[in-house]
Design a protein around this nucleic acid. Structure first.
Length: 246
DNA sequence: GCGACAG
DNA sequence: ATCTTGTCGC
């Protein structure tokens, strides 16, 4: 698997201005529309998930590819930790390992689900966007908490299947009021006393905000997170704990 | 200066 | 992300 934009891979030697400039280029290169993404997730479509776990000295990234809901391929890579976590700059810490993990898959996935945001980012260049542009693969971002933006609709709790727009605020480098993602209730208890939080879905590359939600709902398999991400999360976590993989 | 802040 | 047991509810 080749990199469409190797020059956009994050490096650890950049200062804040250089990081912002790189994210600006990534955002400009990203296609926020359905161009290349499968219209529906059927049995002929390969969907992959990628996620990272950390040990004291390394970032472990795992990518798992599924077809018809069943895992058909997986890769795990270890890379040294080069940066601390900085809100808004997650890709500089995790994208290099993510790209290596996805590149290790036998076949290029038709869609990649990333743990983190895409367009739903201060500069429209979250890790889902960054990884998607580098590989030129359709990507969607799924985050478990809200990084920025404002909910344009009712507050939780929601019923399963509910999608509420997240719009850009005026402090972001995106058109204020534009839809940058959705709060999506992928699963919910049927009891009035306890609830499950929604996930925050946004387009990464070559996907529209609406299709990003459709595809996440098509891959959740009754759980809170899409199955590709769950499996990648589990694979990375297991590898990070047991040092049996060097 | 204060509060917010993906993983 | 990670450190960690029990506990509430289906």
């Amino acid at each position: 698997m080749v990199l469409a934009h190797p020059e956009l891979v994050p490096t650890a030697d950049l200062d804040r201005d250089a990081m912002n400039r790189l994210q600006r280029v990534v955002a400009e290169t990203a296609i926020v529309a359905d161009e290349g993404v499968p219209a529906t997730i059927d049995a002929r479509v390969t969907v992959a998930g990628v996620d990272q776990a950390f040990s004291d000295e390394a970032v472990v990234s795992a990518a798992v590819a599924l077809r018809a809901g069943e895992p058909i391929d997986r890769t795990v890579v270890r890379r040294p930790i080069v940066l601390p976590y900085i809100p808004g700059y997650l890709s500089f810490r995790e994208a290099p390992a993510s790209v290596d993990a996805v590149t290790g898959l036998s076949d290029r996935p038709d869609l990649l689900v990333v743990d983190g945001n895409g367009l739903l980012h201060p500069r429209g260049a979250g890790i889902a966007t960054h990884v998607g542009v580098i590989l030129d693969i359709p990507t969607v971002g799924v985050a478990k908490s809200l990084l920025c933006g404002r909910l344009d609709g009712p507050e939780p709790p929601y019923e399963t299947g509910t999608r509420v727009p997240i719009v850009a605020t005026d402090d972001m480098a995106l058109p204020s009021g534009s839809t940058i993602g959705y709060a999506v209730q992928t699963r919910q208890w049927d009891t009035p006393d306890r609830h499950i939080n929604p996930v925050y879905v946004s387009p990464g590359h070559r996907v529209s905000p609406e299709t990003a939600v459709d595809h996440v709902l098509a891959t959740v398999a009754g759980r809170k997170l899409p199955e590709p991400i769950r499996l990648a999360d589990r694979a990375a976590g297991e590898a990070a704990r047991s040092g049996l993989h060097r």
